[in-house]
Amino acid sequence: MELDPRRAVGRGVLSLALAGAEAIDLLDLGAIRLDGDRLVPAGDPTPQDALLRQACTALVRHEPYESLDDWLWRRGRALADGYEAALESDGDLSRTHRRRLPFGSGGELVLTDSLAHRRAQERREAGDPVLTALVAAVGLAAEPAAEAPDPTDDTATVLAAVGEAELELEGERQRRSVEEAAFDNIWRGA
């Protein structure tokens, strides 16, 4: 939200990146492990973060387990909206009120000066390789960090899956755009 507003990230892309970030956090907590492309529950931690607890409960806990790709799409469905609501509820986001609207909360969402916000800024400024790779994956940075995670690391596998899912999403958007343009041309010609 602090970056150039002209480079806004689509909700779908952001949701996929958030699902990938959750998978990385679950790996770090020892809640899952990767077995090939499958997310295998490995422990039963209780994260302090409510959304990460939801991610833990959302894991498929029976064989053949869920593929990482399926997790990204299933868990990522509207995940950006869930994070936005949680951040607003926690006071990390607030709405500006230029004028009173009769319905809805209205206003633009802005970041507040919170501890969580300062920590995220510090990680980004320090060049945290995973955060930098996720920022690059959503298109807000030209390149991932020079110190990328080890390619044999499960984190690198998740980051690659996020990149592939986002390419797939962009391909689907382009396909729909072409189909809509063709449909419009047919009606204009009639």
Rank of each mutant, 00 (worst) to 15 (best):
A133I: 02
E88Y: 07
L72W: 04
V178T: 12
D69T: 15
V138T: 15
L79A: 15
R61N: 06
L51G: 03
T155G: 03
L134W: 01
E125K: 07
L79E: 14
A182G: 07
G104H: 06
D113T: 12
E172P: 00
D49Y: 03
G127T: 11
T132L: 07
V60K: 09
V178D: 14
D81G: 14
F183R: 15
T155S: 02
E88F: 03
V158F: 00
E166S: 06
P151I: 11
W187H: 13
T132I: 10
A145G: 09
R124H: 09
E172C: 03
E180G: 05
S105V: 12
L159F: 01
E147W: 01
Q174A: 08
S114W: 00
A142R: 10
A55T: 04
G163P: 00
L169V: 11
A80D: 15
A148W: 00
R118I: 11
R53W: 01
G127D: 12
G127W: 08
S67M: 12
A80G: 13
R173F: 08
E84R: 14
R61T: 12
Q48M: 05
W73P: 03
A80W: 04
A85F: 04
Y83I: 14
C56H: 01
T152D: 15
G43W: 01
L79F: 09
A55I: 05
R53A: 12
E170L: 13
R124W: 11
T155P: 00
Y65A: 14
E180H: 09
A165V: 06
R119V: 11
S94K: 06
E143C: 10
P102A: 13
G104W: 07
Q174E: 14
G107I: 06
A86N: 10
D81H: 12
R100H: 04
E143M: 07
L109E: 09
R176N: 07
L72C: 10
D154T: 02
R61Y: 02
V158P: 00
A156N: 01
Q174S: 11
E147M: 07
G127I: 13
A182K: 05
Y83G: 09
V162R: 03
R61K: 07
R124S: 14
G171S: 11
L159H: 01
H62Y: 13
S94C: 09
T46S: 08
S67N: 10
L79R: 12
A133T: 10
G163V: 03
A58H: 07
V135Y: 03
S177D: 11
H97C: 05
R124E: 13
E180V: 13
Q174P: 00
G171E: 13
E166P: 00
P151D: 12
L134Y: 01
A141G: 08
G104A: 10
V138M: 14
E168K: 04
H62M: 15
E179A: 08
A182V: 13
D49A: 10
T157P: 00
T57H: 06
R98F: 03
P102S: 15
A137K: 01
A55M: 04
D70A: 15
L59K: 02
T152Y: 01
T57D: 15
P47Y: 05
L59Q: 04
P129I: 12
Y65C: 05
W187D: 10
V135K: 02
D128P: 04
E147G: 02
P64V: 14
S67V: 09
H97D: 05
E180T: 11
E179I: 02
E108A: 11
A161W: 00
P151W: 05
L101G: 06
P129V: 07
A55C: 09
